[in-house]
Design a protein around this nucleic acid. Structure first.
Lengths: 129, 129
DNA sequence: TGACTATATTCCAACAACGGAATATGGATA
DNA sequence: TATCCATATTCCGTTGTTGGAATATAGTCA
């Protein structure tokens, strides 16, 4: 499984639909777990476990903001990761599942910004000013 | 597992080192199973099973030439597949494992062309004229 | 036809991934 | 301190993946 190959580890992270959706949404900006839940419409355990999976493999980083854990893509990804994330964003444009997620993100962003303390700060793309 | 998502199926194919090596080498041209064995230095079962895995998922196609099964990348891959294969070829350049495979391919190509009937035809990159 | 060659398939054991239910953790707040 | 909230972790059953040994298949050649 391990094989030590960097590329394999990246692809292992990419071969699950939930994780792809997480990474796709993260392409728009940082987000906390409860917002992932709303956007992907998946239970907390599922989201949390997949984020944990991605975290331990370096595909995402996180920061605590009060009770919230705000996840985002690494600032300086390896060339391999950078290339594959770009490729993913590209391909994701074609698929209805990703489109729906992004549409929900767009729709919910203002609400997130108002109602969630974590989003006054880093969370939600609306925060990028 | 299934999830129906096209992208996931592609990534599932890419998350194994042997399959990545196969696809990397196939980037240079068609090849038969026994030549994969020599280049990757892996046993026949392993090669054959991974080729079968890739075949059933549409990442490779094959043609029978006498006793030999000559595999190659699909002529008209889907946009997703095309993008990811390009990305893979790119990333593979950086990794020693792929480099060694390609070096062995280059070294062995002439020998293949002489000694293997299958390579008078489609097999081995030397055949691209 | 029978032997040979290249490849595929089956059987099996070890192991990892996935999801959900329940529970734990840790910071915030009263 | 007790409580609440967001999130993480553990436990567990199901299912998929991997690799190797042995065996099967299907062309080819004598």
């Amino acid at each position: 499984m391990d094989s030590g190959m960097k590329l394999v580890k990246i692809y292992e992270c990419l071969c699950d639909a939930t994780r792809l959706r997480i990474l796709s949404v993260l392409g728009q900006g940082p987000l906390c777990v409860c917002h992932f839940q709303e956007i992907l419409r998946e239970p907390q355990v599922k989201i949390s476990k997949h984020l944990s999976y991605l975290r331990t493999r370096g595909l995402v980083v996180y920061e605590r903001v009060g009770n919230w854990m705000v996840y985002e893509l690494p600032a300086k990804p390896s060339p391999e990761l950078r290339a594959n994330l770009a490729c993913l964003q590209d391909c994701a444009r074609e698929d209805a599942v990703f489109q729906r997620d992004l549409a929900r993100l767009k729709k919910l962003a203002p609400k997130f910004a108002e109602t969630s303390p974590c989003c006054g700060g880093a969370c939600a793309p609306a925060a990028k000013k």
